Amino acid sequence: TTVKVNGTKYKFDTPEEAQKFAKKAADKYNLKVVVDGDDLRVE
């Protein structure tokens, strides 16, 4: 599972880890998590 934040992709072994990271990033930058198929985007 990958998470894309500000054009940078981060790869995670499990969707749970990816979800946690995406949520933290979204909170930090005051953005929202967008599900894109198997991957997540923070925008």
Rank of each mutant, 00 (worst) to 15 (best):
V3E: 01
G7L: 05
T2I: 12
N30H: 12
D39F: 12
D39N: 10
V42C: 07
D36W: 07
K9I: 15
E43T: 10
V42Y: 03
A18R: 01
T1P: 06
V33G: 01
K20R: 13
D39V: 14
A18G: 02
K9W: 13
D38E: 11
F21R: 00
K28Q: 11
T1L: 10
Q19Y: 15
D39Q: 11
A25W: 15
V33S: 02
Y10P: 00
K23H: 09
P15I: 11
N6V: 06
F21E: 01
N6T: 03
A22Y: 03
N6K: 08
D36S: 07
V3F: 01
K24N: 12
V33Q: 02
A18V: 00
G7F: 06
V33R: 00
G37E: 05
T2Q: 06
G37D: 05
E16C: 05
T14D: 08
F21S: 00
Y29A: 06
T2E: 05
T1Q: 07
T1V: 12
G37M: 05
D13Y: 07
E43D: 09
D38P: 11
D39S: 12
V3K: 01
T8E: 07
V5N: 01
Y10Q: 00
Y29H: 10
G37W: 03
V3Q: 00
T1E: 02
K20V: 11
V35D: 07
K20H: 10
K24V: 10
D13H: 09
V42I: 10
E16I: 08
K4T: 15
L31M: 14
D13C: 11
K9M: 14
V5D: 01
K9R: 13
K24C: 15
G7T: 05
Y10I: 05
Y10W: 08
A22F: 03
D27T: 09
K20C: 11
G7V: 03
Q19A: 12
G7S: 05
D36G: 04
L31R: 05
D39R: 04
Q19V: 12
G37Q: 05
P15D: 05
E17Y: 02
D13L: 10
N6A: 08
A22C: 05
E16W: 08
K4C: 15
T2P: 01
Y29R: 05
V42A: 04
D36E: 09
A25M: 15
N30Q: 10
K28M: 14
F12T: 00
P15Y: 15
K28G: 06
E43R: 06
K23L: 09
D27R: 12
K9Y: 14
V34E: 07
A26D: 02
K23C: 12
A22K: 01
V34P: 01
F12G: 00
V35H: 09
V42H: 02
K11A: 08
E17N: 06
F12L: 02
L31E: 04
T2W: 13
F21V: 01
V34D: 04
A18P: 00
L31H: 07
K24F: 14
K11M: 12
Q19M: 15
A18D: 00
L40R: 02
V33Y: 04
D36V: 10
F21W: 08
K23A: 10
A26T: 03
E16Q: 10
V35M: 11
V34C: 07
E16D: 09
L31C: 11
R41V: 15
Y10T: 02
N6H: 13
Q19P: 00
T8S: 08
Y29G: 06
D36K: 04
E17K: 07
Q19N: 07
K32R: 12
D13I: 07
L31I: 06
T1S: 07
E43I: 13
K9V: 15
A25V: 15
V35S: 09
E16G: 08
V42G: 02
G37T: 04
N30P: 03
D38K: 12
A25P: 01
K28E: 10
E17T: 04
K4R: 14
V34R: 07
K11C: 13
T8G: 05
V42R: 02
F21A: 03
T1K: 08
G7R: 06
A25S: 07
A22G: 01
L31T: 13
K23G: 05
V33F: 05
T14Q: 03
T14S: 11
K32A: 10
V35N: 08
N30T: 04
Y10S: 00
K28F: 14
P15W: 14
K4Q: 13
D39A: 09
Y10F: 10
E17A: 11
D36I: 08
N6M: 14
D38Y: 10
K28L: 13
K23W: 09
K23R: 11
L40A: 03
T14P: 01
V3S: 01
D13V: 08
T2S: 08
Q19F: 15
E16T: 07
G7D: 05
K20T: 11
G7N: 07
E43A: 08
K24Q: 13
V35G: 06
A26N: 02
E43Q: 09
A18N: 00
A22T: 01
F12Y: 01
K4L: 15
Y10E: 00
E17I: 05
G37I: 04
G37F: 04
K32W: 08
A26Y: 03
K4N: 13
T2Y: 13
D38S: 10
Y10G: 00
A22Q: 01
D27Y: 10
Y29P: 04
D36M: 07
K32H: 11
V35C: 10
P15F: 14
T1A: 06
D36A: 06
V42Q: 02
K9H: 11
L40V: 06
N6R: 11
F12W: 01
D39G: 13
N30C: 13
K9E: 12
K9G: 06
L40W: 08
F21L: 01
L31A: 13
L40M: 06
R41A: 09
A26Q: 04
K20L: 13
V34W: 10
A18E: 00
K20Q: 13
D36C: 10
T14H: 04
A18K: 01
F21K: 00
K4G: 04
V34L: 08
E17Q: 11
T8R: 15
V35P: 08
D27S: 10
Q19C: 15
L31Y: 09
N6F: 15
T14F: 04
V34F: 12
K9D: 09
P15A: 12
L31F: 08
P15V: 12
G37P: 03
F21G: 00
V33M: 05
K32N: 09
K24A: 14
F12D: 00
E43L: 09
D36F: 07
F21N: 00
T2F: 12
F12I: 01
V5T: 02
D39M: 14
T2M: 08
V35R: 10
K24W: 15
F12M: 01
K11D: 06
F12P: 00
L31G: 15
T14I: 04
T14R: 04
N30K: 11
P15K: 12
A22W: 03
K32F: 10
D38R: 10
A22E: 01
Y29W: 12
L40C: 07
F12C: 09
V5R: 01
T2H: 07
Q19R: 13
V42K: 02
V33E: 02
E17W: 02
F21Q: 01
R41T: 10
P15S: 09
T8N: 10
K9C: 15
K23N: 09
R41F: 08
E16M: 08
R41H: 06
L40F: 09
L40E: 02
D13P: 10
A22P: 00
T2D: 03
K11L: 11
D36N: 05
T14V: 03
K4D: 11
V42P: 03
K11N: 09
L31N: 04
V34Q: 07
D36P: 02
D13E: 11
E16L: 08
K11T: 13
A26E: 03
D27N: 09
K9A: 13
E43G: 12
A25E: 11
T8H: 13
V35I: 13
V5W: 14
T14K: 05
A22R: 02
K28T: 08
K28W: 14
V42S: 02
Y10H: 04
D38F: 11
V5K: 01
Y10K: 01
N6D: 06
T14Y: 04
F12H: 01
E43F: 09
K11I: 13
V3Y: 00
T2V: 12
D38A: 11
T1R: 10
L40Q: 02
A22L: 05
G37C: 05
F21H: 01
N30Y: 08
D27E: 14
E17G: 05
E16V: 07
T2A: 06
K28A: 11
A26I: 03
D38V: 10
E16P: 02
D36H: 06
K23I: 08
N30E: 06
V3R: 00
E43N: 05
K4Y: 15
G37S: 04
D38I: 09
N6P: 01
R41Y: 09
A18S: 02
K9N: 10
K4S: 15
L31K: 06
P15Q: 09
V5M: 12
A22N: 00
E43C: 14
N30D: 09
V42D: 03
V42T: 03
K24I: 12
T8P: 00
T8F: 14
K11S: 11
L40P: 03
